[in-house]
């Protein structure tokens, strides 16, 4: 436990001056900001205040200028945007040492490689949770600033449950990306994989098979595909997602421990 704590503290030192951290928080600001603008436009003229794809989407999703719709939007931002942003975080954390050439400093130590890998997973989870919390808090500030209707604590808690579960699903889903960072010895390979998975998640989602494709599940669960698609998510979907996560974790662990580090 003491070693785990030391490895985690080392992760905090490594990321002390990281610019990437602020980039991810800036990216996470976009959904609350644009969501707020979206809500303001609808507050004035309803759907008529919107145009083009925005209007189509709003009508399809039955969006209204109120708190339930706005909190749903924030959840969808995590469910879809999180795949990209959390994927970016995991690619950076697990691939950076290969890119920096510092990987050799982590491999011949009195501390186990597993402990170091766990520290990375913990730091990654904390980073993603902080992003999710920031997205929510910033959203709440925007929501109150534009004076949305329909606030109630039960409604908020119900939305929060969906928000938290979506966040956890996305966090779990990135263990295979961590493996690709280790296997690809850098952050470009996993970023490429994230991009491919994002496209596949959309295509497979549209084909109606999204509930069986792990990277579509969080988006569908968050409601980004509409209530019908959300209803397709079932125990099997969660089971596939958790199995994918476990496989990613085990593959990362085995690779990190046993593969040659040239």
């Amino acid at each position: 436990m003491k070693q785990q704590l030391r490895a985690l503290q080392a992760e905090f030192i490594k990321n002390r001056h990281s610019k990437i951290r602020w980039v991810t928080f800036a990216a996470m600001s976009l959904a609350p900001l644009f969501g707020g603008v979206f809500m303001l436009m609808m507050t004035a003229d309803g759907y008529e205040g919107l145009s083009g794809a925005f209007k189509t989407k709003a009508v399809m999703m039955s969006f209204e200028a109120n708190w339930p719709s706005f909190l749903g939007l924030l959840t969808q931002a995590i469910g879809v945007g999180g795949v990209l942003i959390f994927g970016f975080v995991v690619s950076w954390l697990f691939g950076r040492e290969y890119a920096d050439g510092t990987i050799k400093d982590l491999l011949a130590l009195p501390i186990s490689r597993t402990t170091i890998l766990h520290a990375k997973f913990i730091y990654y989870s904390l980073w993603c949770l902080a992003l999710a919390l920031y997205n929510l808090m910033f959203g709440l500030i925007i929501g109150f600033a534009v004076q949305l209707d329909g606030w109630s604590m039960p409604m908020f808690l119900a939305s929060l449950e969906s928000y938290v579960i979506t966040t956890i699903l996305i966090i779990l889903l990135n263990t295979p990306i961590a493996f690709f960072a280790l296997w690809g010895k850098g952050y470009l390979t996993p970023l490429g994989i994230v991009a491919i998975l994002l496209v596949l998640a959309q295509v497979i989602g549209v084909m109606g098979m999204g509930s069986y494709f792990p990277w579509s599940v969080p988006g569908l669960y968050s409601g980004s595909g509409g209530p019908e698609m959300m209803a397709q998510v079932n125990e099997i979907s969660f089971g596939i997602l958790i199995a994918t996560s476990l496989m990613g974790y085990v593959a990362s662990l085995l690779w990190w421990r046993y593969a040659d580090q040239k």
């Binding site: 070693q3 050799k104 400093d105 011949a108 009195p110």
Partner: peptide
């Protein structure tokens, strides 16, 4: 065991002291 392999890479955004702190932390 202390070692230096090929190019002496370190975390570029960390200072000399922070890079050494990191090694101390990992070595206990």
């Amino acid at each position: 065991v202390g070692y230096l392999i090929e190019t002496p890479h370190a975390y570029p955004r960390l200072s000399v002291r922070e890079n050494l702190q990191l090694i101390c932390k990992l070595r206990g």
